[in-house]
Design a protein around this nucleic acid. Structure first.
Lengths: 130, 130
DNA sequence: TTCCTTGCAAATCGTTTGCATAATG
DNA sequence: CATTATGCAAACGATTTGCAAGGAA
């Protein structure tokens, strides 16, 4: 299963790199179709899966039932707005220590973790001042 | 929308209380059907949703695409085995401090978080000694 | 020419929902 | 009696997959 070049994959990756709002597969599809009208949704899914398996992008399961994708693979955490659903990067101190904490009284091997924070984003917070 | 008693709901809740392995809706259905053969999958889903909305149980979206349910609503974290998929309670120190950390440089309001740890469970860890 | 990738459509999977009937308060 | 809950089956939304045709090495 040697990897071959594909224009579609390149366009998908490029699009994802321009966005920092963690789009879903469908949003990727809608946008990529503007530069590449014939692309199919299946191809988008296949390449998003391929890219995340290769570690070039990240798949985020934030708990809203839809996968989000992130071209920024550097370690960072995410916030999900309970009101508007937007997924936002958090600038915060490193919390990798929680992985140590989890491993202390555990018989298996802990390789990683995901932490998602919930609440109201800045914009929704303002609108809800009733 | 006043809540009325339902035998089915009671049986579902009772079953969930006997398990500490965080079963999926389907597993709940399979098991509850042994005591209550006519129950439907839809009813199981409806009641699991109802119970978790009431805060009597927790819905866990561990990232495997299937919802898991937990009768233990006390704050604790979970581990998911990448090999066998089992979901295990973690006995670890409180890490709520990460919520403070996340809020420090954030303009919205953070109400909570979920943290899932990944790796190999004790059992799979042993089996994979190649 | 080999075999990876695509487009398309059909299939799958978990979950939700509409509706007529049954059970609760 | 008013209203909520059920069983059943159909509907749904996100994602995956089979297949024949197209494109890269």
């Amino acid at each position: 299963m040697a990897l071959k070049y594909s224009r579609q994959r390149e366009v998908i990756k490029d699009f994802l790199c321009t966005r920092k709002d963690h789009p879903t597969a469908d949003v990727v599809y809608m946008n990529v179709r503007q530069q590449y009208p014939n692309i199919s949704l299946g191809t988008v899914y296949r390449n998003l899966t391929l890219l995340s398996d290769m570690g070039e992008i990240m798949r985020l399961r934030v708990g809203d039932g839809v996968d989000h994708f992130d071209a920024d693979t550097s370690p960072h955490n995410h916030f999900v707005c309970s009101e508007c659903g937007s997924v936002i990067d958090l600038k915060m101190e490193n919390i990798d220590y929680i992985q140590e904490a989890a491993g202390k009284d555990f018989s298996g091997r802990i390789d990683g973790y995901t932490a998602y924070f919930y609440g109201l984003c800045g914009s929704c917070c303002g609108k809800l001042q009733s």
